[in-house]
Design a protein around this nucleic acid. Sequence first.
DNA 1: GAGTCAAGTGACAGTAACTCTCAAAAGAGA
DNA 2: TCTCTTTTGAGAGTTACTGTCACTTGACTC
Lengths: 207, 207
Amino acid sequence: MASAETPSVAQTGPRLGLRERKKIQTRQAIRRAAYRLYGQQGYDATTVDQIAEAADVSPSTVFRYFPTKEDIVLTDEYDPALEAALRARPAEEPPVEAFRHAAMASMRHILAHDMDEFRQRARLMSEVPALRRRAAEGMGESGPMLCAVLAERTGRAAGDVEVRIVVVAIFAAMNEALLHWVEQGQQEDVIALVGRTLDVLGRGLTL
Amino acid sequence: MASAETPSVAQTGPRLGLRERKKIQTRQAIRRAAYRLYGQQGYDATTVDQIAEAADVSPSTVFRYFPTKEDIVLTDEYDPALEAALRARPAEEPPVEAFRHAAMASMRHILAHDMDEFRQRARLMSEVPALRRRAAEGMGESGPMLCAVLAERTGRAAGDVEVRIVVVAIFAAMNEALLHWVEQGQQEDVIALVGRTLDVLGRGLTL
DNA sequence: GAGTCAAGTGACAGTAACTCTCAAAAGAGA
DNA sequence: TCTCTTTTGAGAGTTACTGTCACTTGACTC
């Protein structure tokens, strides 16, 4: 996750107030409890009430932190890093190549730091239909960001159809690659798989 | 929709029994009632109970015909026509081009026959998050079919990663194009828009 | 350090999409 | 007409989610 709530990054910032720290703790407690229960009993068999009890908060609080049960799994904070990496690429580079370099750098970082959670997330996103849908949602979370960056690089409008098409195609392909990776037992080299995926996109979807 | 339940195609087949005919009627009644209520009050504001009452069946029956409320909107029978059109294309043709011809033929047919329902469906799929998600689901409905055809054409396995990536990329792009079309007020020429979309894919997502 | 204010929380009630079960009704075939 | 099977409706139950309201707990002021 590499989110603001992890110890690894929590030390950044100029010392938060007690309130903020408690919020981070609560958020983390809910997520931890959820992941544990999901692992033990499965996603569907785990009710929000159980998560609340395990995290020692009220059910209302769970919904206050995460709008839906799905968000407990899906919320992350990878985007800023990816965006920064993208903006660092030269503007003449075609979108797929720029994304390739940025994504690979981000992924290497994630794999090195939050490997376990990455694996569990990927597995859940592959096995639970509701999560698979959310993940496949083209312009869902990071979409607008990528659109903005690409639009800027090419001098187009952020809402340009072609920009949006490029973005959703990349996301859909990446997502499908991850699903494949999970189905194969997460044995493959993910980085290489991502590379192959972007190759296919870059060569115009030929086989 | 061009589904088996519409008058336009219902006459095919060798005279069904009363039971079958009633099933088709019920299915149609539910769909009609749903579309009407969605149009009047919106998707979220319409409960399944209301649909059941308007269609003059019990709520249980609605769920027997459509596993979820979403399926009332999403169920269609376009696939067989698309598949046939695809298989008719020469095997040497690159996937995007084969899909271009097949999809355009299918769309022309749909627009000529079920224009109104096509518009309403597209609008709902754009405006209702739950439906947008279902539609964006890469390998959702028609995915496996397209994979099979493509795999056959190229002599690959149906589960081949690259085949799947090609398919989800095409679907995601098509879906996004439709969303854009709805956002622009459904004024544009959809066929031309689909063409542009496939151009982007075919040229390797360059801008 | 007491007092005020706002943010965070929990208890509770309500809604609606499903699921399951079982008995009644209706079509199919003899 | 009688039986067998499919389809249907009724009802009860589960669970994700929403909204309200009173209570607690940090944050800030004097």
